[in-house]
Design a binder for these strands. Structure first.
Lengths: 194, 194
DNA sequence: TAAATAGTGGTACAGGTGTCCTAGTTTAGC
DNA sequence: GCTAAACTAGGACACCTGTACCACTATTTA
């Protein structure tokens, strides 16, 4: 009896849990991780914190995620996707030049968490892929907003200014007033005929 | 009698140690912290790692620095100062447009550590001051290289492109070829008469 | 010289960490 | 129904963390 029954093979890295409740729990854990990342940064995302916030037992975290790194990676991916969607929406509604206002309105801590993970991606190939997708998504977004082809270097150029201003604002909390002016200048430069 | 002899008031946060050996030891600890930060990032800078690398007893770290945070802050300041000096040198020698080559040649892990601390500064006012000094220093550097007044927004604009490309390269490890082209375009745009 | 200060280093503490284990319970498929 | 898989939950393990303590020894100062 008890023929090495393989009690819990841990689906972690593989496909999502098959049972409905399992899928919900996994999603809750992920959401908790994202929240913690925003509030306390990188270091706050521990198994115990995540479990506590999701009101689940500690073991649930290791059951649904193979490791803390994987949890972080998925949180990063989710954060990036959400951010891209939000930004796309905003740009569609208010135009590219209104982006500084969106940055101002958004949750600063959340943005910080995003950038923290972005930089951390420099040391983790799994995260690096997500970081690239983020940059690419943003560049495409800018290109669309300026009605430029996706690969037009001018879009890329505008995005460099945009992202630098964004990061600067989030980290250094400088007044946003000149950010808007600088972004305008960058857009103007890009669209000005050579 | 032992009249509350205050055995070790810990100069940590105050002025540097008065004895020569003490000053050397403190410097060694700081250098060790910078090295660790580069190699393993944020998390690697622990009291024990720093002490081991500096070949000093664990207690030396708490004797010379009031806390881990202070140690990190000083490491950040030192890293920033060194980086600014190096870059200034490079620009004086090879010009602004050759900066991508400097980034390529520099120690990637070290740059990563620098950016990690930069983003972390968003959560720590003490680090934030240093982050601002870094940005300001870089902008001034760009302004000087372009023979623009320090506060000219065009210098700031060029720096946004520069820093974004720099961070992108360090984190995402994209080919550096188009970075150079983009930087050139940014400089051209800035200097083009309106 | 003696006293006061600066620095040293070994150790201990209380707490947090990721991860694993295991016995149990629920659910899905037949 | 029954069996196998999916899931739960609590606890434990080994390790690492920042920091405090304290009996020392150098060094400086008076």
């Amino acid at each position: 009896m008890n023929p090495q029954q393989e009690p819990a093979p841990a689906p972690s890295a593989g496909p999502p849990p098959v049972q409905e409740r399992g899928r919900r729990r996994r999603a809750h854990l992920l959401a908790a991780a994202v929240g913690l990342l925003a509030e306390g940064g990188f270091a706050a995302v521990t198994h115990r914190n995540v479990a506590r916030r999701a009101r689940l037992p500690l073991a649930a975290t290791t059951y649904y995620f193979a490791s803390r790194d994987q949890l972080l990676a998925e949180a990063f991916a989710q954060l990036v996707e959400a951010e891209l969607a939000t930004t796309r929406d905003w740009v569609a509604r208010h135009g590219l030049r209104a982006l500084p206002e969106q940055v101002a309105a958004a949750d600063r801590a959340r943005q910080l968490g995003l950038w923290e993970l972005y930089v951390h991606a420099g040391r983790d190939p799994a995260l690096q892929r997500i970081a690239r997708r983020w940059t690419d998504g943003c560049v495409r977004l800018v290109a669309d907003a300026l009605t430029l082809p996706e690969t037009d270097p001018r879009a890329r150029l505008v995005y460099t200014t945009l992202s630098a201003l964004w990061l600067e604002h989030v980290v250094e909390q400088r007044p946003l007033a000149d950010a808007r002016a600088l972004l305008d200048a960058a857009v103007e430069n890009a669209l000005r005929p050579a």
